[in-house]
Design a protein around this nucleic acid. Structure first.
Lengths: 355, 355
DNA sequence: CTGAAAGCGCTTACAG
DNA sequence: CTGAAAGCGCTTACAG
C-alpha cells in the first residue's frame, strides 16, 4: 500500500506514448488516420495526400517513432539484416569492410550481422543457407575467398537471397558483383619497378586457389613482359599469403647467385617476410633490394623502411557493395561496378645498384 | 493457359511443409498437439510430457524446423540479437573479439550485430540508445574505451538493457563485468626486464584517458619499485597508442646520455615505433636495447627480431563476455570474471650489455 | 487517396 | 500436463 499510483494497463483514455515506445497505432490515432495510412507513409507510398504525409511525418518525429523492424520483418517475410560472410581475410580487411558497409547502412534501418565461416569445411554452404533462411536476411555480402565460390552463389540464388560478391574477376552479373581490379594493380607494381630500372625481378605469389593471387601475380608478369622483362620460373615462388611463406620465398629467391634486385609479394604479410629474410641475410632494403607489397596493412607503414605497397580502398568497397545490395530491388544495374587499387610509394624501392 | 498446375494458396488438404519453411503450426498439426505445446518444447518448459516432447522434437528435426526469430522476438518484445559496441581498438582486437563472441553464440539462436561508434562525438550515447531500443537488443558487449564510460552504462541500465563491460578495472557489478588484469600483466613485463638485469628502464604509456594505459604503466612501475628499481620521470613518455608516438617517445628516451637499456611500450604499435627509432639511431635490438610491447598483434611476430609482448587471449575474452551476457537472466553471478594477459617472450630482450 | 479485416509466426495470460 | 483466445506491430489483399 504505497502512495505510488499505478496506471491501468489497458485504458481507453489514451496516454501519450513514452519516448521511443510509440507504435504505428499511436501515430495513427494522434494523426486521426488509419494505421494503414501511417504504413503508407513509412513505406513512401505515393498514395498519400501531401498534407496527411506531412502531419504523419511531424508526429513520427515528435514522438521519435521508428517502425519496429521485427514486426515489419514478420509482415514482409524478410528481415532488415544484411549479412557479411567471410572466410579468413586479414583483420584490417574485415574491419574496414565492416566500416564501409555500415557507412552505407546508416539511417536506412538495416543492420549488419557478421558471419565468419570456414570454406574448407564440408557443408559450409549449408551453414550459410541456414543462416540466411532462418534470419530471413535481406541479403549477404561475400568477401574473397567465399565470393569466388560459384556453388555458394548458386545456393543463394536458389533460395532467392540477394547477394553481392566482391572479387577480382567478374564472376557474376552486374549488380551482384563488385570487381577489384587486382590485375591492373599488379601491372602498376610491375611498371613501377621496371621504370626504376629493375630487370632481375622476383615474384612471391599467394596460393593458386585464390583468384586474387592469380590476378595480382599474372597482371604483374604480363606487364613486365609487355615491357620486355622476362621473369624466369625460378624467380617465381608460390607462397601461402603468410609471413612465414614470405620468409621462405625470399630466402630461396635471394640465395641464388643472380638474385633479384626487386621483389613483389602479393600481400603485405609475405612482403614483411621478405624484410625479415633480407635482414637475416644482410641484404639492405632499399639499397640492395626493392620490395613492393600488397594491401597497405598497418604493418606496411610501420616497417622500416616504410613499405611501398598497393592499396585497395576497402572501406569504399564495403560502402559500394552495401549500396549495390540495397539497390537490387529498385534498379537493374547494367554496368559492372569496379574499384582499382593503387600503388602507394614509400621508402622500400630504389633503382638497382650499378653493376 | 499453360500446362503448369498451380497449387491453390490456402488448401485444407495440408501439404508437407517445404524444407526449412515449416512453422509452428505445421509442427503442431503433424504432432497432433496445439501450437502452445510446441512453443513449450521450443522454450524448454518442464510442463510437457516426455513423450510429447520427444515426438515434437523428432518432427522439428525431421522438417528442419527452427522458430522464426522475428516472430519470437515480436511476441517476446525483444530480439535475438547481441550488439558489439566499440570505439576504435585495433582491427585484430575487434576481429578476435567477434570470433569469440560468435563462438559463444553459435547454436543459441542469437546473432551478432556490430556497432562501431565515436565516443568523442557529442550524443554518441543517444545513438547507442536508439540502436538498442529500435532493435530491442538482447544485450550489448562493450569494449574499451566505451566500456569505461559510466554514463553509457547508466543509460543502458535506464532502458533496461543487458550489458557486459570488458575493462581493466571492475567498474561495475559482477555479471556485468569482465576484467582484464592489465595491471598484473604490466607487472609481469617489469619482473621480466628486471630479472634480466635491467636497471635503467624506459616506459612509453598510452593516453591517460585510457584506463588500460594507466593500469599497464602503473602496474609496470609499481612492480619495478617493489624490486627496488626507480624509473625517473624523464624515462616515462606519454604516447597516444600510435606508431608515430612510439617513434617520438623512443627518440626522446634514447637520446638521453644515460639512455635506458630496456623500454616497455603499452601497446605493440608504439613498440614498433621503438624499433623504427632504434634502427634510425643505430641502436641494435636486442643487444643494446630490449623492447617489450603489449597486445601480441600480428606485427609483433613479424618484426625482426620477433617482439616480446603481452598477450590477452581476446577470443576467450569475447567468448566469456557473450556467455556472461546470455547467463544474466538465469543466474546471479557472484564472482567477478577476469582474464589475465601473459608475457610472450620472443627475441627482443636480452640482459643489458656489460658496462 | 483512405481504411477495415485478416494474417505474418510466435508468445502471454488464462482456463482447465 | 494441455489448449483456445488474444496480442506483439507491422503488412498484404481487398474494397471503396
Amino acid at each position: 500500500m504505497t502512495a505510488k499510483t499505478t496506471v491501468p494497463r489497458s485504458t481507453t483514455a489514451q496516454q501519450p506514448p513514452a519516448p521511443g515506445k510509440a507504435t504505428i497505432n499511436d501515430i495513427a490515432r494522434l494523426a486521426g488516420v488509419s494505421k494503414k495510412t501511417v504504413s503508407r507513409v513509412i513505406n513512401d507510398s505515393p498514395l498519400v495526400k501531401p498534407d496527411t504525409r506531412a502531419k504523419v511525418h511531424a508526429l513520427m518525429r515528435e514522438y521519435g517513432y521508428a517502425p519496429d523492424p521485427q514486426a515489419r520483418g514478420l509482415a514482409f517475410r524478410k528481415s532488415f539484416l544484411v549479412g557479411l560472410v567471410f572466410d579468413n581475410p586479414t583483420a584490417q580487411y574485415i574491419v574496414n569492410m565492416q566500416y564501409g558497409v555500415l557507412d552505407a547502412l546508416r539511417d536506412t534501418g538495416y543492420e549488419l550481422v557478421v558471419h565468419p565461416c570456414d570454406s574448407k569445411r564440408e557443408g559450409y554452404i549449408d551453414g550459410i543457407r541456414r543462416f540466411v533462411l532462418q534470419q530471413k536476411l535481406h541479403g549477404v555480402i561475400l568477401i574473397p575467398r567465399v565470393s569466388e565460390d560459384q556453388a555458394l552463389a548458386e545456393a543463394l540464388r536458389e533460395i532467392d537471397c540477394r547477394y553481392v560478391r566482391i572479387a577480382s574477376v567478374p564472376f557474376d552479373e552486374a549488380g551482384r558483383m563488385l570487381v577489384t581490379q587486382d590485375r591492373i594493380a599488379g601491372a602498376e607494381a610491375a611498371d613501377y619497378l621496371e621504370s626504376l630500372g629493375h630487370r632481375r625481378i622476383g615474384l612471391i605469389t599467394g596460393p593458386k586457389r585464390y583468384r586474387s593471387s592469380i590476378e595480382r601475380g599474372g597482371g604483374f608478369l604480363d606487364a613486365l613482359a609487355k615491357r620486355g622483362v622476362q621473369v624466369p620460373p625460378e624467380n617465381v615462388y608460390e607462397g601461402g599469403y603468410t609471413f612465414e611463406s614470405g620468409v621462405a620465398g625470399a630466402e630461396q629467391l635471394l640465395s641464388r647467385p643472380d638474385r633479384p634486385t626487386a621483389i613483389f609479394a602479393c600481400n603485405d604479410e609475405m612482403a614483411a617476410g621478405v624484410y625479415k629474410a633480407a635482414q637475416r641475410m644482410g641484404i639492405s632494403i632499399p639499397v640492395e633490394l626493392s620490395v613492393v607489397g600488397y594491401d597497405d596493412s598497418p604493418l606496411a607503414s610501420q616497417l622500416w623502411p616504410a613499405m611501398t605497397t598497393v592499396r585497395l580502398p576497402v572501406r569504399d568497397v564495403g560502402r559500394q557493395a552495401a549500396s549495390l545490395l540495397l539497390a537490387q530491388d529498385a534498379s537493374q544495374v547494367a554496368v559492372m561496378a569496379s574499384v582499382t587499387p593503387h600503388l602507394v610509394a614509400r621508402d622500400s624501392c630504389l633503382p638497382p645498384q650499378a653493376g
